[in-house]
């Protein structure tokens, strides 16, 4: 299968999911027996392209244009459409980043082809590739295949493949510049500056223990229960997105793809279902404890210790036991 990988950089810095996606592309190219080409869109990115050429692949295409920096959905869609039509790959793989979410569906619609978004794995069986993605917020998995003619587009979720399994090439792959045409009036979006909200007061990445609350905590007042547990364990309090959306805890305590990524010694998830956008921010934790009343909650797929119960019964019992052992 002829595979085209589209790598992502922003302002000269890699988005590292690019390399995980490259690992998936290498495996697929080996299994299906086909050419693997990587493309890098942007401006002033020659050095990054040379870096990419060190990995085992057949060619690297540098798609440079002054209107590809800064990123716009219009610019990327127009450029990549030209590239795909010219290079005619069968499978186009992209990392599932916020930037890709922003333009890949537009590219797919412009080509009239399918996009399988957020794939977490694949199987190659009977000459075709079956992609695995999640549905129902991770409560079910789904096997999905392409229908109709190529090119087919798929995006790969962060953490689904391992960049440390990337193979390097015996010699650098050839790097070729490809030109694309973009005129200013085709770009309707005017991108502005990137910024962060107010300075972070807590650094959750340094906490040895994190007690995180999800929607199962029900009310703002109940957070005190989790806060007490965090204190008794010498840790920090964190939350899933809906808790911060409600304003019950500040955004800086949010764990997940749009919040912080942490890997403490101990992560205790209270009433958190385990949606992929949360899990990518904490699955590197050494020991994961999940307390959830739903035995099928996806959080149990990655938990070391699971308690299927009402958190309002278990957490007070934990607090009491910890208080007793502290005073004895």
């Amino acid at each position: 299968m002829r595979i085209l990988l589209i790598a992502e950089q922003r302002q000269g810095k890699w988005n590292k999911v690019s390399f995980e996606t490259l690992a998936a592309a290498q495996q697929l190219a080996t299994e299906t027996g086909g050419r693997l080409v990587a493309a890098l869109p942007g401006q002033g990115i020659r050095a990054l392209a040379e870096e990419l050429a060190g990995y085992r692949l057949d060619e690297v295409l540098v798609v440079e244009h002054e209107r590809l920096e800064p990123y716009t959905a219009d610019g990327f869609t127009l450029a990549l459409r030209q590239l795909i039509e010219r290079e005619a790959p069968e499978l186009v793989l992209l990392p599932h980043t916020y930037q890709v979410r922003d333009f890949a569906p537009k590219l797919a619609a412009a080509l009239g082809r399918a996009l399988l978004a957020d794939c977490i794995g694949y199987r190659y069986e009977n000459g075709r590739v079956v992609f695995v993605r999640q549905m129902f917020q991770g409560r079910t998995a789904a096997d999905v295949t392409f229908a109709g003619p190529p090119p087919w587009l798929a995006t790969i979720q962060a953490g689904a493949f391992r960049a440390d399994q990337l193979e390097r090439g015996s010699s650098p792959a050839p790097v070729r510049a490809v030109s694309v045409e973009l005129s200013p009036e085709q770009i309707r979006v005017r991108p502005g500056e990137l910024f962060r909200e107010a300075k972070q007061a807590v650094d959750l990445t340094q906490a040895p223990v994190i007690v995180a609350v999800g929607r199962g905590i029900k009310e703002k007042e109940n957070i005190a229960l989790a806060e007490k547990l965090a204190k008794l364990l010498g840790g920090e309090l964190a939350a899933s997105r809906p808790i911060c959306d409600e304003g019950w805890l500040p955004m800086e305590r949010q764990i997940g793809s749009s919040g912080q990524t942490v890997a403490p010694k101990l992560y205790i998830a209270l009433g958190i279902s385990g949606a992929i956008q949360h899990v990518v921010g904490m699955k590197g934790s050494r020991t994961i404890v999940a307390i959830n009343k739903d035995p099928n909650a996806p959080i149990f797929e990655i938990a070391d210790y699971g308690i299927v119960a009402d958190l309002f019964e278990i957490v007070p019992a934990l607090n009491e036991a910890l208080e007793q052992s502290a005073s004895s």
Partner: peptide, 13 residues
């Protein structure tokens, strides 16, 4: 159709 949902299932741990 450009893609086909083959089946859904409870994910393996």
């Amino acid at each position: 159709p450009t893609q086909k949902l083959e089946r859904i299932y409870v994910p393996e741990k």
